[in-house]
Structures are given as C-alpha cells and as structure tokens.
Design a protein around this nucleic acid. Structure first.
Lengths: 350, 350
DNA sequence: GCGCTAAATGTTTACGTAAACATCGGTGTC
DNA sequence: GACACCGATGTTTACGTAAACATTTAGCGC
C-alpha cells in the first residue's frame, strides 16, 4: 500500500537553521549568526539581505543550540513557596515583566510545601533546566539548612527574608511599615496598640512584630502580649473575637490585610463599631482593601518595586559573572501608610 | 605583575559532563547517557557505579545539550495577560504544580497589555525560548486576529475563552455557575435578579451574562438591563450605588467577588441591609469572601482543576506529537454554589 | 563445541550555534 | 610602491547529549 511507505503523515517541516538562511542569502552561516546577534561588523546591504532571508524562511534561532554554545540561557528561575498570596503574585508579575524588558524569560519553580525534599527537588530541577540566575521568594531560614545547596556559581537574589551576607536580599522595609502603622494609631491618641502577628516562622512577620514592639517602647508604652495568627482571615477572626470582647482594646495593628479583614468581621459580629470603638490597621494594601467595610487603613507595600529591584540586582550579577561575586547588597523598598476609614481617634471614655 | 597572567580570578569550575562521569566510572559516555535517561539495558552493577560517579562529581545533565539533541525541552510556556487576578494566579499555581509532577518546567510569558505587538512579542519570545507546548490564558478572540500566528506545530491549550475547534479549550463551566447563582436567588423568592456583568470583551463575562439572562427567561422573567463593570471593586461600587437607590431591587448577581464586594460597600453606605434589603451573590469564591461583611454567597470556581486539566490535555498533545493533532477537545470544569450570609429571602413588602 | 541470539557496552555522528581563527580587499602611511 | 592595518566575510571547531550503528560477551539449543 502506498501509505505504508514514504513520509510519515504530515511530519512537521523541519525548522530552518542558520545554514538554510545562509544558503538562501548567499552568505556563510557565521554572517547569519552575526546578524542574528546584532554584531556591528556586517555590511548594511548584507545585513538587509540576511534579514530578508530570515523573514522568507521564517527563521527562529534555536535557543537550545544557542544556550549550549554560549552558556547563557537568557532565563532566570523563580522559586516560590506559594502563589497564593497577594504579595507573591504581585512580585512575580513585576519580576516577569521586568525580565521581559531585559529580554529574559522566567522559569517558575513552585515548591508545594516546605519540606526538604520539595525544596531540594526545586533546586535540582532548577539546575537541570538551564537558568542564568535564581530569585528565591521565601523564608530563607530554610536556606541555612545544610542539607541542600544551590548549584555553585549560580547568582542568587533572595526576596522577603533575612538571609545573611551570602546573598543579595531585596525586601520591603518591614520595620518602617510596622512603625508607620503603630505611630499612626498612637498619633490618633490611642494609649495602646494590640498586634495580630503573622506566624513566627516568617521573617517578615517577625520584623513587623519587632518594629511594633520597639515603636511602643520608644513611646514609653509596655507592649501587650502578641497574638499570633497565620496570615489567614480565619486567624484574624479568632483574635478579633478575643480582642473585641475587652473594652480596654481600642486599636489593633494586624500584620496583613487578610487578618485585619477577619478581625473586622469579628468586631462586627460582636457589635463593636470600627473605627468608633476600635481602630484597625492592616498591612499590604490588597486590591480590595479600599472596599472592605469600613475601607481599611493599611500599609502599602510596593511589590512592583521589589520585583524590579530583584531583577536588576540579579542581572547585574549575571553580567558580572565569576567576578565581583561577593558583592552582596541589601535593597530595601519603602512602604507607605494609606489612611482610610478603619482608624479614628479613640472615643473619649465617659 | 602576577595577577595579570594565569587564570582569571576564581573562574568557576567547569561543570562535569557525561564524558567526565564516564571517565570516572570507567565506562563510555553513552552508558552514562543510558543511566541518566533511565534506560533498562544497563547492568545493575554498572548502573550503580555510574550513579556513584555522578554523585562524586556532582554531575547535572546539561539541559541545553539535551534539548538540542532530543528536540524536547521538558518545558511548557504559559502566556498570561495578567497575573493580577485571583483566578489567573490560582490557575498558574495549579499549572506549575501539575507540570512539576510530570517533570516539566513552566516558562512564564507575561503580556503587559493586549496590544498586538505585545502579544506577538510574547509568541516570538516563546518560540525562541524552547517550549514543547503552550497554555494560553486569556481572551482568545485575539487569537482570531490574523496578524500573528503561533509557531506552527506547537501544541496549544487555551484556558478561559471561547476559541473554536482549532484549539483544545479548558474552562470553568461559566454557564452553569451563572445559572446556579440566579436560580439560588429565584429559589429564595426574589422576583427579579439584577446583574453586574464583567466587561464585554471578556468571554467568561459574556457567558455568565448570557446564562443569567437565559435562566431568568426560562423562569418567565424579563431580564432587566445589564450593568457592565470591569471586574473592579470600584465598578461594583458604582453600580451598587445606582441599584441600592431603587427599592425594586432585591437581588444582585455580580459576575465576580470583587464587584460584589464593591456593591456591598455601596449598599452599606446607602444604609441598605445585606441580605435583609438586598441579597448579593458573587462569582469566584475568593479566599477572603467568607470574611466579607456579610460573608459572601458566591460561585466557587475550581481553578486547580482547570490548571490540572490544561496540563493533562497539553501533555497528551505533546506526547502524540505530529499525530492525532486535530483532536481538539473542550473540557468543562464544574462550579459549586457556596451559600453564606449575603443572601436571604426577600422581606415581605408591607 | 558450533553457531545463534540477545544483552551489555562502545564508537561514531549530528543537532544548531558562536567563538576563534583565517582570508581577502581596500586604505592610509612613509 | 611596500607595508601595516582594518573591516567584512568565510572556515573550522567545540559545546554536551543521545540516536544509530558496531562490537563484545554470555547463554543456549542441538
């Protein structure tokens, strides 16, 4: 039968290579390479001819061959613990956008849970896939664990952690944000500020808590016990119920907007007025925060700037490769207090 | 000076190649390749020796060389219009996780805005970086535009659109969700359901709107004019103010949770009780929706399942490559009504 | 023990690119 | 006018892997 011999059914036409373009344009493949990489030492007429041939043949450089030859992938890896937080999503967005500007692609490596195998798996997958550098977005005390190591010589930037001098770190100025929140409440006349903290395993949470404590102490106030949540609205709700039941509580600083939201729901349920009875400040400035009821006073993080800085720092390292490798910096991105309607001066006690 | 000659400062040790491992283990590099790829025809003792050598030398396969040789990258590209929506983030999370299970990496290509150049840029970046297939998460009417084309022969799965038979499409069952929302409100005794729709440029929005309209008609009710929003809380707020000012409005179905949130804020501002005066239903089931005030009745989308299905469909195509290429399916993921406290039977008119 | 088969392993080659080196005119210098 | 130089282009080679083919060895039937 005719069908059993000859070409397999509709095999895809082989992608044209440099050689094909070179033949079509009547030049050597090296000249095509030079045009492809934008080298200057090609005659204008030749360049035009080569470009025409590329168009005609639909030539696309083969990234694998290019990477094999040049050792550069034009790709950066991003390791994230979760894509489920607003902050990470925004950061990723900024990273991807900024990387695209620099003509880099982003390879996303999720870490489903924070077990060692998972993290190690992410690293090995990373080092097998080709990347020129890595941005790690997670709590970096895991990095201190000696059980796994990053591929040596791979530039790394860490976001959102307190990793030491071994890495370049980019982070929101957690301390400044917590201070702004606390001072805002004190400035309104509150005598005490309660704090719903993030989990102790989170460095950003710890930084916020420490800064809240310090701000109170600097104002001559003895900080009340910290109430630890887990970032969820549910934990905010739980602490909101507890705090709302006491009439010595007039101001709450929650370490993120979700917990602030949960706390406000609890206060509503208890019939307490926000901000009449109790003021609430969040942290993050979620998209929705201005539509919470009441609209939430909060600390805005500039996630976009964090992502941009991370890429810039990383590409600096990638370009300096093998040289200057020890120049690790700490980049801090400022926060901003956004005053809405969940905060007010405390009602004068009758 | 001594430093001007000799080796450059601390040049990174070259990564070991198969040849190095082969020499170390006393076998040929081809045997190393066989071990590396898990082929069966290697003696157990030899395999063990090779694996030891790999460990000893810290061998990692070079993905560029592997891709060059085999034509497979073990990478899939994801093109997204925005990472700023809850749904896309969740979908991306699921895609990345599922891909990792199948030992694929995910290359993220953001499209900053929906201009043709942007989209074309994303495609060309994609075809230059090596990917075995693509998942496109955006409104696919752009795909109908002839100005750009996907690299021919590249398997594609489209999420969240009504692309035609040329692509495999995975999507939430928008129609079912809108019907569930509308029927829930009718079932509570409301005589009319108003709709705050998503933008007309969004297919999922259009599907929800159409299904809402059909459900009302099927119940013998003439649908009121559609109020178009843009997914933002702000637009929900605007329509909420308008609808809340009329006393013939008792039930609102918003096409996403953000708009529902905005609408509820408007109703609060107008002094209308939710759900006493007006019931509100959203769509998506945001993480925070159960902590809105009141907790929001909404339609839960299973973004995780959408992502999983997309990967499965795509990998099926990748594996079938060049064969069976025309087998495009439409996979629909069911929704679920989550009843909370923003809906109730209408108050009996006095 | 001969020839056969199959399993284990080795050898050769090509994938597409870009660096390194080679060549070839033309130009300016003395 | 001989020579050095430079810019444009061509030629050769190596990157690390895996497919295709070649070789060796052991086991087995008769």
């Amino acid at each position: 039968m005719a069908t059993t011999e000859g070409t397999p059914v509709a095999r895809k036409a082989a992608r044209p290579s440099m050689g094909d373009v070179a033949r079509h344009a009547g030049v050597s493949s090296q000249t095509v390479s030079r045009v492809s990489n934008g080298h200057s030492n090609v005659d204008a007429a030749t360049r035009a001819r080569v470009i025409d041939s590329m168009r005609a043949l639909g030539y696309r450089p083969n990234s694998a061959a290019r990477a094999l030859r040049s050792g550069r992938f034009r790709t950066i890896g991003v390791i994230m613990f979760t894509l489920r937080t607003f902050g990470n999503m925004r950061t990723l967005d900024a990273i991807a956008t900024e990387a695209a500007h620099a003509n880099y692609s982003v390879m996303l490596i999720p870490v489903v849970d924070a077990t060692l195998e998972q993290v190690s798996g992410a690293f090995s997958r990373l080092s097998e896939q080709g990347v020129d550098g890595v941005i790690i977005v997670f709590e970096a005390h895991l990095l201190d664990n000696a059980e796994f190591t990053l591929p040596p010589g791979l530039p790394v930037v860490v976001i959102d952690s307190n990793a030491g001098d071994e890495y370049t770190v980019v982070d929101t100025d957690q301390a400044e944000g917590a201070r702004q929140a606390t001072e805002h409440l004190l400035g309104l006349g509150h005598r005490q500020v309660w704090h719903i903290a993030g989990p102790e395993s989170s460095f950003s949470a710890v930084h916020r808590t420490e800064s809240w404590r310090r701000t109170l102490k600097d104002a001559g106030i003895e900080p009340p016990p910290v109430r630890y949540g887990d970032w969820s609205t549910e934990s905010g709700h739980r602490h909101g119920l507890a705090l709302g039941g006491r009439d010595d509580v007039t101001a709450i600083f929650a370490a993120n907007d979700q917990m602030a939201l949960g706390a406000m729901r609890a206060l509503h349920e208890l019939g307490r007025d926000v901000p009449g009875d109790i003021s609430v400040v969040g942290f993050d400035d979620l998209e929705e925060a201005h539509s919470f009821w009441p609209p939430l006073t909060t600390i805005r993080q500039d996630f976009g700037e964090v992502g941009r800085q991370a890429i810039q720092q990383l590409l600096r390292k990638v370009d300096d490769y093998g040289f200057d490798d020890e120049d690790n910096r700490r980049v801090t991105v400022p926060t901003r207090l956004i005053v809405r309607e969940s905060t007010a001066s405390p009602r004068v006690r009758s």
